[in-house]
């Protein structure tokens, strides 16, 4: 029984490591690959939970995670980057080292929170819950410290990966909710993509810093 938890914790730990990889990577293509790796690990983690806890509905979740976020979205983003013809380097607000340190602090915060909140019989699941919360916070961090719109999309998607992981650990979410979340993420990708193209059309860059200087009255 212990081995089951060990492996699910290991997969969740790998996801957290890929979250750090997202912060660490300098090139957009590498960021997208790291995101694909995270999604595929998520699919494995969910599939493991489905198999070990005998909940076949989770296999559908795993399938959605693998096909949509492991393959379709990264490929779509790769093609978007190619079509935009933007810099392949990632623009950052803070340096890699500082971002990693903040990431560590967030992980510690997530653990401190979960240890405080989740006490009692469900303590086996709380390690996974702490990891999931850390991944969600890292997704936030990714959206804050990266100025490029494409990497912001990746941060958002990675946050959603953390949510699915948390839901899997905490006895799962209903399948209807799961499917609608998956599709809303897909819709969000389209909306983001349209926005990215509009932003670039207008400002000649997808650095969202340009939006700060944009004022309606200054024509």
């Amino acid at each position: 029984m212990n081995q089951v938890y060990d492996i699910s914790h290991l997969l969740a730990g790998v996801m957290l490591v890929t979250s750090f990889a997202l912060l660490y990577q300098q090139r957009i293509a590498a960021v997208l690959n790291a995101f694909a790796a995270q999604s595929i690990t998520l699919a494995l983690a969910v599939a493991w939970a489905a198999w070990s806890e005998n909940r076949p509905d989770l296999f559908i979740t795993a399938l959605i995670a693998f096909s949509l976020k492991g393959v379709v979205i990264p490929v779509a983003l790769h093609r978007t980057v190619a079509r935009l013809g933007i810099h392949r380097e990632v623009e950052k607000v803070v340096g890699v080292g500082a971002a990693l340190m903040v990431g560590l602090a967030l992980t510690a915060l997530a653990q401190a929170l979960v240890v405080k909140i989740a006490q009692g019989p469900a303590s086996q699941a709380r390690e996974e819950l702490a990891l999931a919360l850390a991944i969600i916070l890292m997704g936030f961090l990714m959206m804050i410290v990266r100025r490029n719109a494409v990497t912001q999309i990746v941060g958002f998607m990675s946050m959603e990966n953390g949510l699915i992981l948390a839901a899997t650990g905490a006895r799962g979410m209903p399948l209807v909710v799961e499917i609608s979340v998956a599709f809303s993420v897909l819709i969000a990708l389209f909306v983001f993509a349209v926005f990215v193209f509009r932003i670039r059309e207008r400002f000649d860059t997808i650095d969202i810093e340009a939006l700060d200087r944009m004022r309606g009255d200054r024509r």
Binding site: G13, V17, F20, L104, T107, Q111, V115, S123, R126, E127
Partner: peptide, 16 residues
């Protein structure tokens, strides 16, 4: 970063 994560997780799983 990895070493720090490891020690955090070690504390957490010990608590569990």
């Amino acid at each position: 970063v990895f070493a720090f994560l490891a020690i955090l997780l070690a504390f957490l799983s010990r608590g569990a």
